[in-house]
C-alpha cells in the first residue's frame, strides 16, 4: 500500500513526471482537450451517459475511445460515463462500417435508448464506410442504418477529436442541452 501511495504522490498530474526527459509541451492535443472541458461541464452539468456499439470496426477507434478514460482526457471527471445498457444512455457512439451481421443489433440498441437520443458516428468508416465500403457483408456508413447527428472523421480520430464530436452533438441538438446558466439543474429525460 505504501508503495502505491508513494507512486501516486509522484504522479499527481498526468504527464507531469511520466517522461522526465520530455518538455511539458509534448502534445498540442492535450491543450485542445483541456479547452473543451469547461464547455462540456457547462452543457452537461456532469451527466452524460454513453453507450458504445462497435458496428464492425477494425478496433482502432475502440482503442481511441478507451483512451478517453485515461487521466489525460479524464472524461469521467467531466461527468461522462460509458454505460453497459442502452436503457441508461443519452448518447450512442458507433464505430466502424456497420457489418450486415451487426445491423439488427445496432438498430435494437438504438431503439432501446430513451429519447431524446444523440448518435455520434466515429471514424472514417462510420462517416463514409471507409476503406470497407458497402458490400454483401457491409452496410457502409452508420447513417445507412440509423439516424446520425454528428460524424467524427479520422482513421482513427484521436481522443481530442472524439471529445470535440461529443460536444458538437450536444450543441447541434439544443433540445438536449439546457441553457448554460441552469446547467446544474439539468436532468436527463426519461420516457
Amino acid at each position: 500500500m505504501w508503495h502505491i501511495l508513494k507512486y501516486i504522490a509522484r504522479h499527481r498530474r498526468p504527464g507531469a513526471s511520466a517522461s522526465p526527459t520530455r518538455s511539458p509541451t509534448l502534445s498540442p492535443s492535450r491543450h485542445r482537450a483541456h479547452l473543451i472541458h469547461p464547455d462540456i461541464l457547462a452543457i452537461l452539468g456532469r451527466a452524460l451517459a454513453i453507450r458504445h456499439v462497435d458496428g464492425g470496426s477494425c478496433n482502432g477507434c475502440e482503442l481511441e475511445i478507451h483512451a478517453l478514460n485515461n487521466p489525460y482526457y479524464n472524461i469521467e471527471g467531466l461527468g461522462i460515463k460509458f454505460v453497459a445498457s442502452p436503457r441508461h444512455a443519452d448518447m450512442l457512439l458507433v464505430t466502424g462500417p456497420v457489418s450486415r451481421h451487426m445491423e439488427l443489433a445496432l438498430k435494437r440498441t438504438y431503439d432501446a435508448i430513451p429519447a431524446p437520443k444523440l448518435v455520434v458516428a466515429i471514424g472514417d468508416c462510420g462517416c463514409t464506410g471507409g476503406i470497407f465500403g458497402e458490400s454483401y457483408a457491409s452496410c457502409g456508413r452508420v447513417s445507412n442504418v440509423i439516424p446520425v447527428d454528428v460524424t467524427v472523421p479520422g482513421c482513427p480520430p484521436p481522443p481530442a477529436d472524439i471529445l470535440a464530436g461529443i460536444l458538437t452533438a450536444l450543441r447541434v441538438r439544443p433540445s438536449l442541452a439546457p441553457d448554460e446558466g441552469t446547467a446544474s439543474d439539468f436532468t436527463p429525460g426519461f420516457n
Binding site: H11, A18, A67, N70
Partner: peptide
C-alpha cells in the same frame, strides 16, 4: 483502478510519442 490509471497514462504518453 490504480493500475488502469497508471498504465493508461503510460500508454497515452507512448501513443503521443508515436504521433510526434
Amino acid at each position: 483502478g490504480f493500475a488502469l490509471a497508471q498504465f493508461s497514462r503510460l500508454r497515452e504518453d507512448w501513443l503521443r510519442a508515436n504521433f510526434e
